[in-house]
């Protein structure tokens, strides 16, 4: 599925939720079902700075598409990660770089995150873009 389609799907899912509690419970559920990351990937070099909880993000290129693996020691953060993986894992570097990250505002997630967590989310997105850029350079 295309990035934009997955994003729209997620926006729709969030639209039917009434309050922050539902959104939190949904994200907590996602967080719980995200497979834990291989401990080898939980290295300092995969650690994202700017998060209050620890977040690791690893990426690999397979058949010209990027696959992301990520984990966190906080469950709500894992929920956020799970959403990002659903959208961006398996996409090509170019598609990721061309995509808009506006859906975050549309699902109203930022309003429900504390400033530090919102900063953490921005750091994760930045890191996803960095990987995309690095792999695209490699492919060209």
């Amino acid at each position: 599925m295309k990035i934009i389609d997955i994003q729209n799907q997620i926006i729709e899912e969030f639209e039917v939720m009434n309050d922050w509690m539902e959104k939190y419970e949904y994200m907590i559920g996602l967080g719980k079902s995200l497979p834990t990351m291989d401990n080898n990937f939980k290295s300092d070099s995969n650690l994202i700075k700017g998060c209050q909880s620890r977040v690791w993000l690893h990426a690999e290129l397979k058949n010209e598409n990027i696959f992301f693996h990520a984990d966190s020691d906080a469950i709500i953060t894992k929920g956020i990660i799970s959403i990002l993986i659903r959208i961006y894992s398996g996409q090509s570097p170019k598609e990721i770089l061309d995509s808009s990250f506006d859906f975050i505002n549309k699902i109203g997630l930022k309003d429900h995150l504390s400033q530090t967590r919102a900063n953490g989310l921005s750091s994760m997105i930045k890191q996803i873009k960095m990987y995309a850029l690095a792999f695209q350079t490699k492919l060209n």
């Binding site: 922050w20 209050q52 909880s53 906080a74 469950i75 709500i76 953060t77 995150l113 967590r117």
Partner: peptide
């Protein structure tokens, strides 16, 4: 088994100001 930041976030939503970290 629960990260303090997760609890802190829910407490915050309920109006309770605590510190985590």
């Amino acid at each position: 088994g629960i990260h303090p930041y997760d609890i802190g976030s829910i407490l915050d939503k309920m109006g309770i100001a605590v510190r985590t970290g």
